[in-house]
């Protein structure tokens, strides 16, 4: 037994660890998605916008406008809940750009980019992990709505299909925000520009009111607004009477968003110094 405590020296691994084959594109994306999920667990405040915010919106809009718009709060709830579900998830997709902008400025992206992995894996991983936030948003909206008396006429399968459609749309939309997150200088700038785009998309739509009373110019926009198409599709699904046209247009919109913005985003990511 010794009486003196020697400082423990740092011992490194003399033994060589051979490098295996690099992970597949899917495996790398999922691993990087797992990283984002861990970050959500570590910083749960990231979930405020998909938990408290929709609750406040639902309660506020239903009791504030319910009587005036639909004659009763129950009836308005039936109308507005699918809309608020869409609005919440669409707004949540904005966060992708902000977090990407913050993240990419740190040294860790240099490390990812110096690895022999599929280049867009870090992007796709982040977007996939955001899917969890969208699921949380959908569950919160539906839960609060049902507790307040929302009753979808459609089957469980219809409701699940409606939620999946919203998720797919948010995933497609998040490529725009990811692109902004990559090309803009600061997280604040990303937020500013994204919010600017967000208002006409979500408020100038059929989320809160039936557009039949709107002036012509506004209706023209509301009718082509992809968010309106999505809301119509979600409403129809939840009502158990799917509107094939609206569902189709929503899916075409998703495909178009991904077709345009995924390549732009990946290119911006490759160029990022």
């Amino acid at each position: 037994m010794s009486t003196t405590t020697l400082e423990r020296p740092v011992r490194t691994v003399a033994a060589r660890v051979e490098r295996p084959e690099p992970p597949s594109a899917l495996s790398a994306s999922l691993t990087l998605g797992w990283r984002s999920v861990l970050k959500i667990r570590r910083i749960p405040e990231q979930l405020f916008d998909v938990t408290f915010q929709p609750v406040i919106f639902i309660v506020m809009f239903v009791y504030l406008f319910g009587g005036a718009v639909s004659g009763s709060t129950t009836e308005y709830l039936q109308f507005v809940l699918p809309g608020i579900l869409v609005q919440t998830v669409v707004m949540a997709s904005l966060y992708t750009g902000i977090s990407l902008n913050t993240d990419i400025g740190k040294g860790i992206f240099d490390r990812f980019r110096s690895l022999p992995i599929w280049r867009p894996a870090a992007l796709l991983g982040a977007l996939l992990a955001d899917g969890i936030r969208y699921v949380v948003a959908a569950v919160v909206c539906l839960g609060v709505g049902m507790a307040m008396g929302f009753r979808p006429d459609g089957t469980v399968a219809d409701v699940v299909a409606a939620c999946l459609l919203v998720l797919v749309f948010a995933f497609s939309l998040s490529w725009i925000f990811a692109f902004l997150g990559l090309v803009m200088r600061s997280a604040g700038a990303v937020q500013g520009v994204s919010l600017l785009a967000m208002f006409p998309l979500t408020f100038a739509s059929n989320v809160f009111v039936d557009p039949s009373t709107m002036p012509g110019w506004l209706r023209a926009w509301v009718d082509v607004n992809p968010v309106s198409q999505l809301v119509t599709a979600v409403r129809s699904l939840m009502a158990g009477a799917p509107d094939a046209g609206a569902v189709g247009w929503s899916l075409i919109g998703c495909a178009a968003l991904v077709a345009v913005f995924a390549p732009l985003t990946v290119r911006a990511y490759r160029r990022k110094a």
Partner: peptide, 22 residues
């Protein structure tokens, strides 16, 4: 500059890195 994830633990960072090299 710091090239590990500050929000993750030591173990999580090294597991992440190990998975990414395959």
């Amino acid at each position: 500059y710091a090239s590990v994830d500050e929000d993750l633990t030591g173990t999580e960072n090294l597991v992440l890195q190990s998975r990414l090299v395959g």
